[in-house]
Design a protein around this nucleic acid. Structure first.
Length: 342
DNA sequence: TCTGGGGTCCTAGGACCC
DNA sequence: TCTGGGGTCCTAGGACCC
């Protein structure tokens, strides 16, 4: 199967409508003001040369690259571009497309020459959207997904059972899709530093450290194993949420209540669009300095009433009994599962 | 350096039931 | 004294991804 990932997607879409910025360092994130609280969504390759990365605070990006052009995130435009990309992939004969996010998808297709198919897909996407992508070829989802990184930018790379350990064996476990800093540290604590070590780690060590489900899962990941078929079943959301980071921390009770009401109203609007009522309310609060709480409450009956959602969230907030300034508030509504479950 | 906003899935532990 | 066994539901929180 193949994994298609757009190159510097948000920045590339912005460059389509601002060609005069081509060749300059461009950073897309937040409201486009690098002195505000916010993070980098995508940096152009020129900006990456200055050390600017996704997820980095905008203020840090500004320090690293003072001459960068900072642009606000414009969701509808990226959504439209994403749909053009996905439609192009689906139009490829025989393609089964599993969308992973705005800018990436797995594509399953029967072919004797997957690399040629990868080149064809890249050309089709470029022709239809003026956007470049990279493609990974693999015999499992994990291998295809990781292969794409080696193809970037504008390239193709193949990762299979045959070259997996040769390419990945000496790399740190964080090179794997699904292993972050924390899991890597726990693996390190039992002497596992590299992909090859994880691949050959005794089952009982992994089960002992990570449980009967996740332990074997990490072992399989180390070997590049896992699912090998693309599933194009449409994705059904479990929940919708909204959160907001305040430019200055909230101390005023009325302001907090107003913010929770706004967030609850946005959540309920999403649920109405979905036609599925809210059955559980999640509250997320970050107090300065950087301590996040989440609280969950099941409602006695499902609701579309924003004031019920807001009142529940506020009750959860009061239950924390903490009057420190609030940096972030989030309200999430978990929906009643669809008929027949997920 | 000092943190977005949208999500998903897994685990642990307590309450409760038979 | 010193403690079954199985199950479900619920909440809190960890970890990861784009």
């Amino acid at each position: 199967m193949l994994h298609v990932d757009m190159d510097q997607f948000l920045a590339a879409v912005e460059l389509l409508r601002r060609p005069e910025l081509r060749g300059m360092p461009v950073v897309v994130g937040g409201r486009g003001d690098p002195t505000e609280r916010g993070v980098v969504s995508t940096a152009s390759y020129e900006a990456r040369e200055f050390g600017v990365r996704s997820g980095m605070p905008l203020r840090t990006a500004l320090k690293r690259c003072p001459d960068a052009v900072f642009l606000p995130v414009d969701f509808p435009v990226y959504e439209a571009a994403s749909e053009r990309v996905m439609a192009t992939l689906r139009a490829h004969p025989g393609a089964v497309v599993e969308v992973l996010g705005w800018d990436e998808a797995f594509v399953g297709v029967e072919t004797d020459d997957p690399v040629a198919t990868a080149h064809a897909l890249r050309a089709e996407v470029l022709a239809a959207t003026d956007l470049h992508c990279s493609v990974g070829v693999g015999d499992t989802l994990v291998r295809a997904k990781i292969a794409t990184d080696f193809g970037k930018p504008q390239g193709t790379f193949m990762l299979t059972r045959d070259n997996w350990l040769e390419v990945m064996g000496d790399r740190p476990t964080t090179a794997l899709w699904g292993v972050g800093k924390r899991i890597a540290a726990r693996l390190s604590a039992v002497g596992i530093e590299t992909v090859a070590q994880l691949a050959s780690a005794p089952e009982d060590v992994l089960v002992g450290g990570f449980g009967p489900s996740m332990g074997p899962h990490y072992g399989r990941l180390g070997r590049g194993g896992g699912r090998s078929t693309v599933d194009d079943t449409p994705w059904v959301a479990r929940a919708h949420g909204h959160e907001r980071t305040f430019q200055t921390d909230l101390v005023d009770v009325a302001e907090v209540e107003a913010a929770v009401h706004d967030l609850a109203a946005a959540v309920v609007a999403d649920l109405r669009r979905e036609g599925r009522a809210c059955q559980r309310v999640h509250l997320k609060v970050r107090f300065a300095p950087f301590f996040t709480f989440t609280r969950i409450r099941k409602l006695t009956e499902p609701t579309y009433d924003a004031s019920v959602v807001a009142a529940t969230a506020l009750d959860l907030l009061r239950g924390l009994d903490d009057d420190r300034p609030i940096r972030l508030l989030g309200v999430r509504g978990e929906m009643v599962p669809p008929e027949g479950g997920y």
